[in-house]
């Protein structure tokens, strides 16, 4: 297996040291690397999650979030490094006794009725939630006799999340839980998840929507290009990720480069039309600098940078 006792001093103390002082980590990932052919999906990722945390995994598509979840749920093995949930290998079914996951892309067996799918899943757990109570909680109480193929996208998504909670799990992995939902349905699902978390469960949720992470997570882990770029409280990650995009016409490229050199929090200039574009942590400072240095500028425009744009700067900074 991938358990490499060669690195004993680094791998095992995480569990032994904490005995007595506090509870063991629910998730313990160390130096994990995973490739698919020539693509490096995860490149030296380490992550520890303590009981009761609600962690948001934020990153653009293809960053490695889904691969990380597939390692935690035992679907795949890492090429190197160790993955532990509740102190055990997730490839071992016994380690997954308190794990809840959702089917991806709302993939449910279309000919089966809602109640039949819930029944199949709940039989795997020693103390499952009663189907009626669970479905009621997700607003699916009237649909138990319906075949899953006849559900709307939002209903399928809610059922998928409900399936993650059937077994009263202590660790829930949710991959893009609200993709494709309308605003109202999204908010309802968030409320359900928060109430579940307040019962004491540990939740790991991936998203490429900043809004979703803001609504749910206390701790945010930013993943990009297979690595962890930031791991901090929600407010501090927001501050790092929140960038402004400044577009401005300057006399020549040298002036643009000079601006970026003078201000450390301003990115290198990029040409956009006949203007230069900068990503800045503090757009006001950039404008003040332009005025102070008497740089002739025109067509100034300041707007919020998209999350994707912010990720690009984070990725560059971490190099």
């Amino acid at each position: 297996m991938t358990t490499t006792p060669a690195t004993t001093p680094a791998t095992s103390p995480g569990r032994t040291e904490r005995v007595g002082s506090s509870e063991a980590a629910v998730v313990d990932v160390r130096d994990v690397r995973r490739t698919f052919g020539s693509t490096v999906a995860l490149d030296g990722v380490s992550l520890t999650v303590e009981p009761g945390q609600l962690v948001g995994l934020l990153g653009p598509n293809g960053a490695g979030k889904t691969t990380l979840l597939s390692l935690l749920s035992g679907l795949r093995r890492p090429d190197s490094g160790t993955v532990r949930i509740f102190g055990g290998d997730p490839r071992d079914p016994a380690s997954r006794a308190s794990l809840g996951t959702t089917p991806q892309e709302t993939g449910l067996p279309e000919p089966l009725r809602v109640s039949e799918v819930v029944d199949l899943v709940s039989r795997h757990f020693p103390d499952p939630m009663p189907a009626g109570e669970l479905l009621e909680r997700f607003g699916l109480g009237d649909l138990t006799r319906r075949q899953t193929g006849s559900l709307s996208g939002g209903q399928k998504r809610r059922l998928a999340v409900a399936l993650a909670l059937v077994g009263r799990p202590q660790l829930v992995l949710l991959d893009e839980p609200t993709t494709g939902l309308d605003v109202e349905a999204r908010h309802e699902l968030w409320t359900a998840l928060r109430s579940f978390h307040s019962d004491g469960a540990t939740v790991l949720v991936t998203s490429h929507y900043l809004e979703e992470i803001e609504a749910l997570a206390e701790r945010v882990v930013v993943v990009g290009q297979g690595r962890i770029l930031a791991d901090d409280s929600l407010s501090r990650v927001l501050a790092t990720v929140a960038r402004r995009k400044v577009l401005v016409r300057l006399p020549d490229p040298a002036a643009a480069q000079a601006l970026s050199t003078a201000l450390p929090t301003v990115s290198d200039p990029a040409s956009e039309g006949d203007r230069f574009a900068f990503l800045a942590a503090d757009a006001d400072e950039l404008v003040r600098h332009l005025v102070r240095t008497d740089t002739p500028f025109s067509d100034l425009e300041v707007r919020g940078a998209s999350l994707e744009e912010a990720f690009i700067t984070l990725t560059k900074e971490s190099r």
Binding site: S73, L75, R96, A97, T102, P103, Q104, P109, V121, H124
Partner: peptide, 14 residues
């Protein structure tokens, strides 16, 4: 090739 099969594999079952 459908997503439900991988989901079933994440359940505590061998």
């Amino acid at each position: 090739e459908k997503p439900f099969m991988p989901f079933l594999r994440t359940l505590p079952v061998g």
